Amino acid sequence: MASTAQAADQPPAVETPPVGVMKKLLLQDTTPYEVAVGAVPTTILMPFPIDGMDGNGITTQAHTVAPVFLQHEQGTRFFSVKALLPGTADLNVIIGERVYSFRFYYSENPTRTLSISEPKKGSSIAQARRISVTPKRLHDILNDAKTYFVIKKQHPELQRSIEVAAPGKVIEYPGYRVVIDQVFRFDRDDTLVFRAIFINDSDEPLHYKPQEVGLRVGRNIYWPSFAQLPGEIPARNPARVTWELSPEIETVAITDPEGRTAEVKTKKGALLSQTGRYKIVASTAKRRTDTLYFSINYPVSADEPNPLVVSKGDRDFGIRKLTVTQPEAGQNIGYITYTGTSDGRRADISIDNDFLLVVDARKEVSQ
């Protein structure tokens, strides 16, 4: 009897609430996602960071009455919702130039997690996707590429959906070179950013049209969606020759490889652009002279000292010290972005491709 009385005094069993369901869906912007929500949080994971949200029947304040409560940390690609009241609510999630819609409705068996991923490359859905990147977005992409390594150094814990490669590939053209220094890939925008170094080996500036710097991948060629390029590669820097003279020297004359002689007005140095063998003569007022020979070479071989220094004693007559710094290539850098294909579809170009930048640089560029 005692055991029967104890059983009668026990509280009634509590029904275990539903565990909820976990879902995985593909990214699409043609039909709203219908998501069941309840008293437990529902976490929704998008494939890319969220740029903005716009909703109806939704609150982000704990003490505000609305059917659905939403939590989202700016810059992340996920958010959580839960039901506060029975009813429905609507949310638009903005990523880039696309809007993805959600309809939330109350349920005793809510969705606990919803992971939304991009369609696999090559699928009919992926092939049908078009890419639309605004000029402002291209500007932001370029800025992200230019500051990538600075931000990575300052915030190593920050995870960013940017692929990076540093191929260092040198593309040889007659009289100039183009180096593919760095490549950045922004998958969400189907955009590649190239940091290129332009090198001029000639003694004249070269010009090119930034909008016509092509990207060749296999048999395909792509044209820039945005280019931050100077359009000119500066000429090769001339050689610099400096000297130190004894006090009695009055004039210095230099004879170039073609036999032309010119008196140097300054007593400190000169810039020489022509390659070949030179003669320098230092003279006193009484025509006492000191002569040295030197060569200007480009390119400079690895075993040749640069700068070349010829020295005498501090009390010797004439040219006590001659320093020859050989010419250096003119160069500058620029950034070029390529987005999708010419008909507005995704190109999905891998960052591991063997890229070729097509640059037509000339002494004069046609308008």
Rank of each mutant, 00 (worst) to 15 (best):
L84Q: 04
Q211Y: 01
G218V: 07
E263C: 00
T4A: 14
T337N: 08
L356Q: 10
R130T: 15
A83C: 03
I199D: 06
S225G: 12
R137K: 14
L357T: 13
D203C: 04
W243I: 13
R130V: 11
A128T: 10
T111C: 05
M53N: 00
V358P: 02
K136A: 09
V40A: 09
P17L: 04
Y173E: 10
I199E: 11
E250L: 09
A145N: 05
I333Q: 03
S202R: 03
V179Y: 02
A253R: 11
L215Q: 08
S117V: 07
S273Y: 03
S366G: 12
G313Q: 12
Q28C: 10
G334Q: 01
T191G: 02
N332F: 08
D316F: 09
T284D: 14
I141G: 03
Q182I: 01
G276I: 12
N220K: 14
P224F: 03
Y106E: 04
P41L: 03
R277T: 12
E97Y: 05
A5T: 10
K209G: 08
A5F: 10
A347F: 06
Y298F: 11
T31N: 11
F104M: 13
A253E: 10
V21R: 10
N353T: 15
N353M: 13
N297H: 08
D290W: 00
P230D: 13
L84G: 01
Y100R: 05
V164D: 03
N143K: 07
P47Y: 03
L245N: 00
R98E: 15
S80Y: 01
G52M: 08
N332H: 06
L45W: 01
N297D: 14
K286D: 11
R240A: 11
T43N: 10
E250W: 04
Q326G: 12
T284A: 07
T323P: 02
V359L: 11
V179N: 00
D54M: 01
G122L: 01
L356K: 12
P17Y: 10
L206N: 08
V164L: 02
A347E: 07
L45T: 01
P67G: 03
T266A: 06
V310Y: 01
V65I: 13
I249C: 00
G168M: 07
K321L: 08
G313C: 14
D29E: 13
E15G: 06
V264D: 09
I50V: 14
I171R: 00
T325C: 12
S80W: 00
E244Y: 03
T275K: 02
G175R: 00
M22I: 02
S273A: 14
P135K: 05
E304Q: 12
T147P: 14
R177G: 07
H207N: 06
P12A: 02
G276M: 03
I131Y: 05
T30K: 12
T88R: 05
G38T: 00
S115T: 14
K265H: 11
R160T: 14
